[in-house]
Simulated assay, not measured.
Amino acid sequence: MKQTAKTPPALLLRWAEERIGAVAAVRDASHDRDRSRVWELEGVGGVSWYLKVSPSEKFYMRESRAYRHVVPALGHARAPQLVDSQARDLVMLLTAVPGAPAKRLGLGIVEWRAVHRQAGVLCARLHEAGELESADRGEAAASLDAAAGGAEKYLARAGDRLSRTSGS
């Protein structure tokens, strides 16, 4: 098996192989953050999966819950699917989906508008999926408050670059 300098712990790699079969190659797919630990696993037949270790129990619970309950509302081709997870090690095994992050594509204004429209369609699907469980409501409210605070920060940074529209 071809491995990179930053490979998953052997125990987690064995755990993944018990679920997906032999792994032919491992590629570090972590984000450029200290606590990001993500690996792309390529199977013998060329199929890929992602092995991800969450940085904390809070993030693990949030993300694994989203893969179980929210992602199905988006549709199977629109997001990775959770193959398995293990709370003890904060690890998730996910299917790979085709595509690349929009930030890396060098999109123009027209393409960015299309991305935002697609995001709106996905948000609508989430709203149509039904009520949140009580355990998720508090966290969702906190996330909305944080997003609103972030929007205020970006608006302040934009300053004079934004123009006022009629009716505001």
Rank of each mutant, 00 (worst) to 15 (best):
M1N: 03
Q3R: 15
A5R: 12
A5C: 06
T7L: 12
L11Q: 14
L13K: 12
W15G: 06
A16S: 13
A16I: 07
E18S: 13
E18N: 15
I20T: 06
G21W: 13
A22C: 01
V23Y: 11
V26E: 12
V26M: 09
D28A: 06
A29N: 04
H31R: 13
D32G: 13
D32F: 09
R35V: 01
S36L: 05
S36W: 05
R37S: 12
W39Q: 02
G43F: 00
K52T: 03
K52F: 04
V53K: 05
S64H: 00
R65I: 03
A66D: 03
H69M: 10
V71K: 04
P72I: 06
A73L: 12
A73D: 06
G75E: 03
G75Q: 00
P80S: 14
Q86C: 12
Q86E: 15
D89E: 13
V91M: 11
V91C: 15
V91N: 09
M92F: 06
T95H: 02
T95W: 11
A96M: 02
V97M: 09
G99V: 03
A102P: 00
R104V: 01
L105R: 13
G106M: 04
V110T: 12
E111K: 01
E111M: 01
V115R: 01
R117P: 00
R117F: 10
Q118A: 14
A119G: 04
G120E: 07
V121L: 13
R125P: 00
E128L: 11
G130A: 08
G130H: 06
E133W: 06
E133M: 02
D136Q: 07
R137G: 03
G138Q: 06
E139W: 05
S143K: 02
L144I: 12
A147E: 11
G149R: 07
A151T: 09
E152C: 08
Y154T: 08
A156G: 03
R157S: 05
D160E: 11
R161N: 13
S168D: 14
S168C: 11
